[in-house]
């Protein structure tokens, strides 16, 4: 499946990219800022968007998700260090999304994407 990563921590993004690519998925790009991430999604139209909550720039991951939802139905995988009930309930309001708390278990993420791929097929 195709994916983009919108994450301000480059090492984390790079780690995810390598793991997911080693599992056979295709990375269409990495961005650290929300508005650039939105443009990347508009341009590349990925199937999966791996989205951090706290990003560089003026927009939060939730703001970015809301903007993306206006033009895309791609699955959004939130990754966040915020695991409070308040934050989780905010993220649940975004349709077609799932939350992976940091540090993300990449094996779990790969399994999830595999299941998603099977469901799509």
């Amino acid at each position: 499946m195709t994916f983009v990563i919108i994450e301000d921590e480059y090492l984390i993004a790079l780690h995810m990219q390598r793991c997911l690519e080693s599992a056979g998925h295709i990375c269409l790009g990495i961005e650290a800022e929300g508005d650039k991430g939105i443009r990347l999604v508009q341009e590349k139209e990925p199937e999966i968007i791996i989205l951090d909550i706290l990003l560089a720039g003026m927009m939060s991951g939730i703001d970015v998700a809301k903007e993306i939802r206006k033009f895309s139905k791609a699955m959004i995988v939130f990754t966040t260090g915020y695991t409070s009930c308040e934050m989780l309930s905010k993220l649940e309001s975004i349709s077609e999304s799932v939350v992976f708390p940091k540090p993300v278990s990449l094996n779990k993420l790969i399994n999830y994407i595999e299941k998603l791929k099977q469901n799509n097929n």
Binding site: E9, I12, H15, M16, L54, T80, Y82
Partner: peptide, 20 residues
């Protein structure tokens, strides 16, 4: 919340760095 978030983020960074 910030402290916890930073801790987890940093743990993720360390983990990623090790893997890479």
């Amino acid at each position: 919340y910030e402290l916890l978030h930073r801790s987890r983020n940093n743990m993720a960074v360390i983990s990623s760095l090790l893997y890479i």
